[in-house]
Nucleic acid binder design. Structure first.
Lengths: 224, 224
DNA sequence: CCAAAAGTGTTCCGACTACACCCATGT
DNA sequence: ACATGGGTGTAGTCGGAACACTTTTGG
């Protein structure tokens, strides 16, 4: 029993979604500012309770949409956190999800109904409520592992992208530089992306070809 | 609402543990026979509800011990299953775990209090209750994936084992034959196992050297 | 014409694969 | 002595890593 007292008498089930994006050359997570007075100054991963007849993933989508305005993003289950002490208000078991988005595709809900929504670089998180720090860390670790053998990087990019953008995504998440020629050779021979008509000019240099993913569904592929 | 009616008004949390072992040259899972009349003839993975102030992993251990007599095994979280319709008696969200044991280390509880406990080969499961078939399938897939890049195989073997036993474990789980010389070279250069004094004679042939794992804690290692 | 990112092949080396025979024991 | 699984080394091949210059555009 915490100093705040238990709010729920039964254990309840919640979902939390760690939303990742790549922005300003950094891996960033979406956080919302806490409103509860006990957590003043803390931020949290968007989430909330699961309704009686609602599926877990459905609940995750609903809270994400309600609190951030995001819809139609890719999510996958991360892990379930159930330490009896993780929530001072009662026994809350949280099923954590990872979501990947192309940040420029989503307008963040400005409504101050939830106290603010903002992106934070993974290196440089603010104070997080509950065990959300652990959840975000584990999510980042999982992302780093899965990006090498699946096509999930897709979720972080816009529909059409350049090979340099794709390579930067890998470099940022893995935290290391990759040789350009080897990268292109490897990625192209997976046949998982395909050139698409149109080039993009982004400055005083040669314009880049655009590509898109051939398979839209998540699957295991040896990417690197 | 199912034809059996809802037993619980609130969603409750349960754990289920898929226990794997290698026995008779096959990967096998531990199942218990259902007692509820609605599930006559069905088997299930050992598990049950989480108590009010009990941790998830603690609950998994407790049910495993109560229903099968096993203690001190290695478990890790698999996934959480929360389809609102997965349990006809109410909304039960189940956190599934994987356990790995050396089958000869554990005497199965003979008490018929739970309707019977038995090993079943993964290829050749009986009718399973709830969504346990899906849970076991996913557990087997996860095991197959993780055995290549972690030291979890350790959980399936006795403390001291021969290289042939270790190789057989890999062959059975991966479902393919492995070259003996390449296997030994690879495994030994990981430094994750170490020869131990004593040999084992198991028939009309040269006795085998015994080995043990150097690190007892689960960790990621490129095994194959 | 200069700056800046796009685009493109080859060589080298280490890792994985394939493969066959002698050894130590029990019966 | 023979049947059985334990134990050992090498050669060939393939994939990953290292590496530098030309192209196209905007300013």
């Amino acid at each position: 029993m915490s100093k705040y007292g238990r709010k729920y008498t039964h254990a309840v089930i919640a979902t939390d979604v760690v939303v990742f994006t790549i922005k300003d050359e950094k891996l960033q997570a979406l956080l919302i500012k806490m409103k509860k007075p006990e957590f003043r100054g803390y931020w949290a991963v968007p989430g909330g309770l699961v309704k009686g007849e609602e599926g877990l993933e459905t609940a995750a989508f609903r809270h994400l949409s309600e609190k951030t305005g995001m819809r139609g993003v890719y999510i996958e289950q991360l892990q379930t956190f159930g330490d009896p002490k993780r929530d001072p208000f009662g026994r809350v078991v949280s099923v954590a999800y990872i979501a990947l988005v192309s940040w420029d595709k989503h307008e963040l809900k400005t409504s101050e109904q939830y106290g603010g929504v903002a992106w934070f670089p993974i290196a440089g998180l603010p104070k997080l409520a509950y065990d959300h720090e652990e959840i975000v860390r584990m999510a980042a670790t999982r992302l780093k592992a899965k990006i090498e053998y699946t096509n999930i990087v897709r979720g972080l990019l816009p529909r059409r992208f350049t090979l340099t953008e794709l390579q930067r995504a890998y470099e940022i998440i893995l935290g290391k530089v990759i040789d350009k020629r080897n990268f292109r050779k490897k990625i192209l021979e997976t046949k998982i992306i395909k050139e698409v008509k149109g080039k993009i000019s982004s400055g005083a240099h040669r314009p880049a070809r655009m590509y898109r993913f051939v398979v839209d569904k998540p699957q295991a592929v040896e990417m690197l």
